[in-house]
Each structure stands twice: as structure tokens, then as C-alpha cells.
């Protein structure tokens, strides 16, 4: 960085090849950290954390439900920001990141809903409650599905990228409004018997494994996002020399000399 306004890093960041090669160097470490954190967090939470006084053992689902929900919501913003960067700076790479984030986020949102439903049965006696947070999560899933569907509706990949980036941005503006409205709607209709607000303070022995799991999910998200983006890069850059070199090295076909 010689001069004060050195923007080369920014343009290098936009280069798919630079991204592919740099992440390739860091991937083994990320794999190791992610898997280790996931295993440690799960075993700690499921077997070693003390059980909840009121909910008993069913509360252990929190170690999956909360981290997954965090990433499901954060993922939408990551996707929208990547789309916005693509629209503003016309950066190819950020569209690839956005495209990779959509199915990942949708899968995590589904998981958040599923673990929530399974947790609900022993706790409130029913799989589904129209609670504010659950309803917002369901709407988030629909928002993800909309972005995914729009992405693949166009023949031209470029148009699909731009259109879904635009939709993701519109969704981002709407998410706070949706959350506030659903919150208000719920307080209006709240059934007196069901109270879903969790305990305000958590015992440290319960909280530490949760923290590990949240960290593990952030690593997991980064890992899968990078892996998916690398696949996108290979497919889009298949005509370029460096991808062809990679393919030649990896090729184990019959007549390869």
C-alpha cells in the first residue's frame, strides 16, 4: 500500500481467480475449525450441559435452534449485501456469493423452523404455534424461496442475478417492517396461556456450549458459502486458462499424458 488511496485490494477482491486461490489456501484450516467446533459444541450441549429446570432435556434443542436461526437471518443480509455490491460495482464475484447464499439460507431457515417445531411439541404440547418469531421465520423462508425462484426463472444468468439482487434488496428494506408488524400483531392476539419468551438469564454452564455452537455455525456458514462460491467460479470461468490448467491437473482420464 504505497499511496493513501490504493484500491488494488478492492479490485483484486473482485477477481474470481484471486478469491479461488486465496480461499483454497485457507480452506483446510476452516474445515478443521468448523468440524471441531461443531463436534465439541454438540457433545457439550447434548450430554454435558445441565438440564433446564422447567423444560427438562428438551431444552437441549436450543443448541441447534438458536445458532441456526441466527445464521438464517444474518444470511439474508449477507445475500442482500452481496447482491447490492454486485449491482453497484458490477462485480461478478459478488453475484456468485449471492447465488451461493440463497439456497444455504433457505436450508438454514427450514432447519430453524423444523427444530423449533420439534422443540415446541414437548414444551407447549403442539408442533406449531403462530408465535411472532415463528411467523417471521416462515415469512423469511418465503422471501428466500422468492429470491431462489427468480434467480432461476431467467434464461440469461446475468439478468437472473440482477433481478434477484434487486428483490433481495427490496426484501431487506421490508424485513424490519415485517418483523415489527408481526410483533405487534402477536401482542394483539397473544393467547394468555402460552408464553414463549425464554428465560432472561441463562446459567453460564448452559450458555458456554451455546456460544460454541453459535461460533461453529458462523464458521459453517462461511465454509459452505466459500465452497459454493468456488463451484460457481469454476463453472463461470470454465473458458479461462487458469481453470483449464486446474482441470488438466485434476484430470485422471484415460488418454491424459
Amino acid at each position: 500500500m504505497g499511496s493513501g488511496r490504493d484500491w488494488t485490494w478492492f479490485h483484486r477482491l473482485g477477481s474470481p481467480r484471486w478469491f479461488y486461490e486465496t480461499t483454497g489456501r485457507w480452506l483446510p484450516l476452516l474445515w478443521a475449525v468448523t468440524l471441531a467446533l461443531l463436534v465439541v459444541g454438540l457433545v457439550w450441549g447434548l450430554l454435558y450441559a445441565p438440564q433446564d429446570a422447567k423444560q427438562g432435556n428438551s431444552f437441549r434443542i436450543i443448541y441447534l435452534h438458536v445458532p441456526v436461526s441466527f445464521l438464517a437471518l444474518a444470511g439474508y443480509y449477507i445475500m442482500a449485501i452481496a447482491g447490492a455490491v454486485g449491482l453497484i460495482w458490477k462485480m461478478k464475484l459478488s453475484y456468485m456469493v449471492m447465488k451461493s447464499a440463497a439456497p444455504l439460507g433457505a436450508a438454514l431457515t427450514f432447519l430453524a423452523l423444523f427444530t423449533g417445531a420439534v422443540w415446541g411439541k414437548p414444551t407447549w404440547g403442539t408442533y406449531w404455534v403462530w408465535d411472532a418469531r415463528i411467523t417471521s421465520m416462515l415469512i423469511l423462508l418465503f422471501l428466500y424461496l422468492g429470491v431462489l425462484a427468480l434467480q432461476y426463472a431467467f434464461h440469461s444468468q446475468d439478468t437472473g442475478n440482477k433481478a434477484s439482487a434487486m428483490l433481495a434488496l427490496v426484501g431487506t428494506v421490508n424485513i424490519p417492517i415485517i418483523y415489527k408488524s408481526v410483533d405487534w400483531w402477536y401482542t394483539l392476539h397473544q393467547p394468555a396461556t402460552i408464553k414463549l419468551t425464554s428465560a432472561p438469564s441463562m446459567h453460564p454452564d448452559m450458555f458456554k456450549p451455546l456460544l460454541v455452537m453459535i461460533l461453529a455455525m458462523y464458521c459453517f456458514y462461511a465454509l459452505v458459502l466459500i465452497l459454493n462460491t468456488r463451484v460457481e467460479i469454476l463453472q463461470r470461468e470454465r473458458k479461462t486458462g487458469w481453470v483449464r490448467d486446474l482441470a488438466r491437473q485434476a484430470d485422471t482420464g484415460p488418454d491424459n499424458q
Partner: peptide
């Protein structure tokens, strides 16, 4: 990832 590398290799061959 493996599939796309393979398909590129096949195309090159």
C-alpha cells in the same frame, strides 16, 4: 466441484 472439473477436462479432451 469435482463434477465441474471433470466436465471441463472431458471437454478439453
Amino acid at each position: 466441484h469435482r463434477k465441474s472439473l471433470n466436465s471441463i477436462a472431458v471437454q478439453m479432451r
